[in-house]
Structure formats: C-alpha cells, structure tokens
Amino acid sequence: MKVTVYPHSINRGDIRTNPYINDFIHALKQNGVSIANPPHKNPLFSLLPMKTDSDAYIFHWLENVPDYKYGLLQTIAAIWLIARIKLKHKKLVWFLHNKQPHLAKHKYLKNLLIGLLLRKADLIVTHATEGIETVKKLYPAAVSRVIFLHHPTKNRLGDDNLTPVPPEADLLIWGNISRYKGVPEFMRFATEKQLPLQTKIIGKCSSSDLYEELAPYTGKRIVLENRSITFEELKKEIETSRFVLIPYAAESILSSGILMDSLSFGAKVIGPNVGSFRDYAEEKLLKVYTFDTFEDILSIVRNECEAIHIENYRSFLNNHSWEKFMQQFCQLLITNHSSLS
C-alpha cells in the first residue's frame, strides 16, 4: 500500500518540533507502507503537482493552513487537493487532533476546511473519545466514519524501577509556550492567589513579547526558563517534580503529545477535564487528574499523594506503543480501502 501523508516537512533537527509526524511515518514504514511524498519545506504546495497514485491520503492539522504563510493560497490548494482526491476515488483520512484550531483568527477559512473534511473524509481518527462527540455536534452524518484510537506513546521507563527522589517542585510545566496552552493564565492565577506551590516552567516562549508578559509573574515560587528541553533532561525534571501540570485551554484541546510524553517517563499528570485527559483520569493504570478550574489544582496536589505503580505504567505504555497503534491503523486502512475498491 502507498500513502501520502501531510504534513511531511523537512526535519531540521529542531527539538521544538512536534515529533508526532516523524514517528507516524516511521511506524507506517515499519508496517510495510510506502510513503509517496518525500519531506519538503512546503509540505502542502509540494503535493499539487504529484500524481494521485496513492491508495490513501492522510491529513493531520490541515485545518490550520489558514494560519501559515500564504494562508489563503494554501487554503485554496487544500480544497483543490481534496477535490482531486475524491475525483480519483482515493481514500481520504483525517486525524482530528483538536476540537477546533487553537488560534482564533481566520475562522471562516478554518471552518470551511473542517466542514469539507467532515463531509469528504472516508475515515476520521481521533485520539480522545470526546472527538466522537465533537464530530457529532459539527456534522452528525460523519459519526459513522469516526474511530477512536489511543494516542500512541513510547515506553521511556527503562528496565529498572524508578528510584524515589526528593521533589524539588510541586508542579512542572514543560514544552513550547504558546498562548493557547494556558501558561499565562495559570501564572497570573498563581501569583494573584499566592498559590503555595513551587512551580517550575521550562519552555521556549513563542515570542519575545510573550516572555516579557510572563516575566513579572516569576519569583520565589514560579521559575520560568525560556528555553527548549531535551527528553534526557525532561526525565530528570519529572523525577524531581511531584506532578506535571498541563494547563491547556479546554476550548480547543482533545489529545496531547505533552501528556503522552510525560506519561512515558512515569509522570503523575494534572490537566483540564477534557479530551484524553478525561479519558486517562478514568484509566486505573495511570495517575492522571483533571481540573475544571485552576482552583482545583491545589487540592489535587495536597490530596493525591499515592505514588505511581511502575508496572502499571509500563503495561499501559507497552499496550499503546506506536507499533500497536500502527497495526490497528493499517488494518483500518486495508479494510476501508477494500470497501472503496
């Protein structure tokens, strides 16, 4: 089977880059699937002159293209590409990662693309059960084409049990800092309420203006390091933090790579009561806790003192590996392709 995957960008080794697509493509290849489109600095425009000889076209975050350079042209290109795929009777797969795009601008163009994907996708994959409800609200006729597959992850625990380390922070927030991730709102809240929790934030701010906005909220209880973090360092930070806090805005988020990567190191996680956070709060193998408002966070930290069970985490991570996820997904591709032939 041959597939085209968007976005397939040139990997320049930037540790801030979301590794999901590279892992996704690698796992496809491991399952014997051929990738039709090579990596390109313009992952959408580069698809336009290509022959439609793929069995399936797999789109991630296509609804975000209005935010990119030449956003209007990219939107037109995306619409034309979808039309050509359907005209050639090829399979179209859309991964629904978020309830809506994180950035509020260009709503008309984004809604246009979302509506088109809902109507034309042969298969819609979501990593959170709430994604099914999202599709039901947006376009009920598409619900029969939606399937939930757990967000794939990696087991970074190693073979040895975790050795308890005295915590240096109550809360660790990590990853690139953008406005939709709720970090500014949490820092403001923690400062105004004098939240008695030691919070360490390590992440590169999306702009110098954002860093300057956050800097006044730092102090004895809130430390902000405006830089990217490697996974090697993240492991040590998680070991010396009681919880990883993911203060995302609940309006847009469904699934989270930050959540899965934190769990891969054995973290106890606090996140908003939505999407995959809600799903995994009900997972008995994990220690994931949810908040409805920031007011809930202090009581969670004070009351949830039970340590993780390393073998439970190991079992969860192994059961939701990239290998097992891709085996499930490829079976769906084969089944769906047969039904279209």
Results as ranks from 00 to 15, higher is better:
75 T>K: 08
290 T>V: 14
77 A>K: 00
100 Q>F: 01
7 P>L: 02
207 S>W: 02
335 T>M: 04
93 V>P: 12
8 H>L: 09
15 I>K: 00
270 I>S: 07
24 F>V: 08
116 L>S: 11
140 P>E: 05
218 T>I: 02
288 V>Y: 03
33 V>N: 08
245 L>T: 03
336 N>R: 14
330 C>A: 04
107 K>C: 00
157 L>G: 11
64 N>H: 01
98 N>V: 01
295 E>N: 14
25 I>D: 04
296 D>Y: 04
237 E>L: 06
170 D>S: 06
134 T>D: 05
10 I>K: 12
288 V>T: 08
111 N>Y: 05
122 D>W: 00
140 P>Q: 11
304 E>I: 08
233 E>L: 09
145 R>D: 06
176 N>S: 10
257 G>A: 07
308 I>H: 13
258 I>Q: 07
32 G>N: 13
304 E>R: 12
183 V>H: 04
232 E>W: 00
215 A>Q: 13
298 L>T: 14
78 A>G: 06
182 G>I: 03
49 P>Q: 14
258 I>L: 13
74 Q>I: 00
339 S>F: 00
178 S>L: 06
16 R>A: 13
165 V>Y: 01
290 T>G: 08
333 L>S: 09
316 F>E: 05
246 I>H: 05
178 S>I: 12
270 I>A: 09
8 H>S: 09
280 Y>T: 06
198 Q>S: 14
53 D>Y: 00
32 G>L: 08
73 L>Q: 13
336 N>G: 12
320 H>K: 11
213 E>G: 07
124 I>C: 10
21 I>G: 02
277 F>H: 03
82 I>C: 12
205 C>K: 04
219 G>S: 02
115 G>C: 02
34 S>V: 08
289 Y>I: 07
109 L>A: 14
163 T>K: 13
329 F>S: 11
32 G>I: 09
191 T>F: 03
333 L>A: 10
202 I>S: 10
